[in-house]
């Protein structure tokens, strides 16, 4: 009942969203709006990707920055080696991310809970160290990148990146929504609630975890790839910055992990606040706000914004009836 209508609604909304981004890119003059908007969209992709593994399956990934950084450096490598166009950079980054995700998925064979989380931090630092010692992509000092000329109909590269990010948001959210509503999502939730019981009831836990890790990794790496062209610069310290990990995790948990809309809401709310704070006060304050919000929400509102909204909805219905 209503299944078809819901699907139709989602895809109309998605199409409208991309069309709006496109129309903005063609009409709005102020470059800064796109400069800030790109970051917000990027965080929606990261948070949504994090939630596929962290929210549905309950495996806390502290390694978002590993995937993001590897995405950045896949783009840098392709650009320096073969001067690949942007869409190839993003596509290859997604493939690399999926492969790396499979590797992380194999870790879940033996590691649960905090051990898995610490292992993902380990991957981040190891990847960062490898890149730092790799001279071809700039090593520790980083590398300057030149943007190729912008393609029609855009009049600036940032606007084009903004529209690409909007398309990536739609892909990420559609994937998360599909995972959530399919047997895959039910299996992942069973794993989160009790992995051994799920395994005993015939849920193919390893396969499901591998698929979730690969999807999540591919999206995170793909989100990192355009970042190289966005900044026109890449260095290991900022590409593998742990802030990406804490942001993706915080946005998902603050928005609510049980539904795909949670990370989207969390990312919009936090990334927008962050953009405002970075401009008006300082970038330290925005990380502090992130940390404080994260702790407040996990302590006081474990279901996130979604949970709060549901409670408000129930309360309102009781009042009216």
């Amino acid at each position: 009942m209503g299944g078809v209508g819901r699907h139709l609604g989602f895809w109309i909304g998605a199409a409208a969203f991309v069309a709006l981004a496109f129309a903005m890119a063609l009409t709005v003059r102020n470059e800064y709006a796109f400069f800030a908007g790109f970051v917000v969209l990027q965080f929606i992709v990261l948070a949504t990707a994090w939630n596929i593994l962290g929210g549905y399956a309950g495996y806390v990934n502290f390694g978002t920055s590993a995937f993001f950084g590897i995405g950045v450096y896949t783009a840098v490598f392709l650009l320096k080696a073969v001067a690949a166009p942007l869409w190839i950079q993003i596509g290859v980054a997604a493939l690399v991310g999926a492969a790396l995700g499979l590797g992380v998925g194999l870790l879940t064979l033996r590691l649960r809970g905090i051990f898995f989380s610490i292992a993902t931090v380990a991957i981040t630092i190891i990847a960062e160290t490898l890149i730092t010692n790799w001279k071809f992509v700039g090593g520790a000092t980083g590398v300057q990148l030149l943007r190729p000329p912008v393609t029609e109909p855009f009049d600036s590269y940032i606007k084009m990146l903004f529209v690409i990010a909007a398309v990536m948001v739609v892909i990420a959210v559609a994937l998360a929504r599909y995972v959530q509503n399919s047997g895959l999502g039910r299996g992942l939730r069973a794993i989160r609630d009790d992995e051994i019981a799920a395994e005993c009831s015939g849920v193919p836990t390893l396969n499901l975890k591998l698929v979730a890790c690969a999807l999540s990794g591919a999206l995170m790496c793909a989100a990192g790839a355009p970042s190289a062209m966005y900044l026109q610069f890449a260095d290991p310290v900022s590409a593998f910055n742990l802030n990406y990990s804490v942001s993706a995790l915080a946005m998902s948990l603050i928005g609510g992990t049980s539904h795909w809309i949670g990370p989207v809401l969390g990312a919009i709310l936090l990334a927008t606040t962050q953009q405002l704070l970075t401009v008006t006060i300082s970038s330290e304050v925005n990380v502090l706000v992130l940390g404080v919000m994260l702790v407040l929400f996990v302590v006081a509102a474990p279901e996130g914004i979604i949970g709060l909204a549901r409670r408000l909805w129930r309360w309102a219905r009781r009042r009216t009836s």
């Binding site: 905090i114 915080a250 948990l253 502090l288 994260l294 996990v298």
Partner: peptide, 22 residues
């Protein structure tokens, strides 16, 4: 609270670490 303590407990300490650092 029991269930789900893993994810949120980890996030809690991660958040504390970030607050101290910043």
């Amino acid at each position: 609270r029991g269930s789900d303590a893993g994810v949120r407990g980890l996030a809690f300490f991660f958040g504390i670490a970030f607050i101290i650092e910043v």
